[in-house]
């Protein structure tokens, strides 16, 4: 089995491998950075000094890994979910139209896969924006 054959059979693995790698790297970096920020803020407070506002902003900004345990979304987070819904819906619609135009071709399934994935992500974003409680 040469490279071309291997690539033709497993090209779709690019996407889950990329997603898993980004998720893992992002999670590890966020964890390490949060610890550094907390240690620094503690050092400032131990010395009786005011931590820099940029550092406090870094500590208070929500990360991508759902550390907000209250279930109450801020207006910014809700707007973000609505915006995600709009973006994913637009992508799903675009790829659906693309699939419709090339549905006779051999590679049409790729458009369908992306359209379905974007559609599911759009529904997820809509569900989150509808179910997140107001503060």
């Amino acid at each position: 089995m040469d490279f071309e054959e291997l690539f033709r059979d497993f090209w779709w693995l690019l996407f889950p491998i990329f997603g898993m790698s980004m998720g893992l790297i992002g999670m590890l970096q966020t964890e390490s950075r949060n610890q550094q920020v907390m240690r620094l803020i503690k050092s400032y407070l131990d010395q009786g000094k005011e931590p820099p506002p940029e550092l406090l902003k870094l500590a208070s900004q929500p990360n991508d890994y759902g550390t907000n345990m209250s279930g109450v979304a801020s207006p910014g987070q809700r707007n973000s979910s609505v915006w995600n819904f709009v973006v994913f819906f637009a992508l799903a619609a675009g790829f659906s139209v693309g699939y419709w135009f090339v549905r006779g071709e051999a590679y049409a399934f790729a458009f369908l896969i992306v359209a379905v994935t974007m559609g599911v992500l759009a529904l997820g974003a809509l569900f989150i924006s509808l179910t997140s409680r107001r503060p």
Partner: peptide, 25 residues
Amino acid sequence: ILGMARGDAYQDAVIRDAREKLERK
């Protein structure tokens, strides 16, 4: 990847500046 690297670089710069400021004082 580029976006993540840029975001990380900014956050690292904030932490580095804060650490230098703390050591200077």
